[in-house]
């Protein structure tokens, strides 16, 4: 009988910094690794996962759950992250839990600032000019270039990947929030997995940042078992 304890692996590829982490099933951190994403997620993610596993002395067969950040964020990163996480969960026969990256960043920012979640407003980029606004408990929404979020007097702005495109104090809060993303991702992910996780097939990235004019298509695809 295998007495080795299980572990969960989390990854987020939605922002300008990739983060991966390994935790015990209750979310307690065993290892973390983060690096600037550049445009090379596709090359770097799996080798980094392999490295982190070996650093923590774990076998991949010990993974009992996979956690993945679902955005909003960079298209390229999200595709690599979701595809990698899905293949791993499928191969290992374990649960997958999607954690919205925006929500995790809000939580990390709240911890960092010692503020209630409701007071924070997160901004992330959506292409070269637009931004995405994320608030706790509400669907993320797109802010067209030039328009500003509607802030109550108490609201505190947090900006991730928006250097020069948001106030400096918001950008600084964003940097600190992202430094805590891995930890929060593991904690929220462990919770999500405990609740049963997500449907492996149906998990897709949050796409509030689709190009303007393109509705998120929900139509069916045509199936073929290639009948002869």
């Amino acid at each position: 009988m295998d007495e080795r304890p299980g572990a969960i692996l989390a990854m987020d590829t939605a922002t300008g910094e990739v983060v991966i982490g390994i935790a015990s099933p209750d979310g307690a951190r065993l290892g973390l690794s983060r690096w600037p994403a550049g445009h090379r997620h596709g090359e770097q993610l799996l080798p980094a996962i392999e490295r982190l596993l070996s650093e923590t002395g774990l076998q991949r067969s010990q993974l009992t759950g996979i956690v993945v950040g679902t955005g909003p964020g960079a298209f390229t990163g999200l595709r690599v992250g979701l595809a990698t996480a899905k293949a791993l969960a499928h191969a290992l026969g374990c649960r997958i839990g999607g954690v919205p990256t925006g929500e995790a960043l809000l939580v990390a920012a709240a911890v960092d600032a010692g503020l209630p979640l409701e007071r924070l407003v997160l901004l992330m980029p959506a292409g070269p000019s637009d931004r995405v606004e994320v608030r706790a408990g509400r669907p993320a929404r797109r802010l067209a270039g030039g328009s500003e979020p509607d802030l109550a007097p108490d609201d505190v702005l947090v900006a991730v990947d928006l250097a020069e495109r948001a106030p400096a104090d918001a950008v600084a809060r964003g940097e600190r929030a992202r430094a805590g993303l891995g930890e929060v991702l593991l904690r929220l992910g462990a919770e999500r997995l405990r609740q049963g996780g997500d449907q492996l097939s149906e998990l897709v990235p949050e796409y509030v940042t689709l190009p303007r004019g393109v509705a998120a298509a929900t139509g069916e695809v045509a199936w073929s078992h290639d009948p002869r």
């Binding site: 596709g42 993610l45 799996l46 390229t76 595709r79 690599v80 979701l82 595809a83 990698t84 899905k86 293949a87 791993l88 499928h90 191969a91």
Partner: peptide, 11 residues
């Protein structure tokens, strides 16, 4: 392409 490549190499 990235979806297939990431998926296949992880498998």
């Amino acid at each position: 392409l990235l979806v297939g490549v990431s998926f296949a190499k992880t498998l």
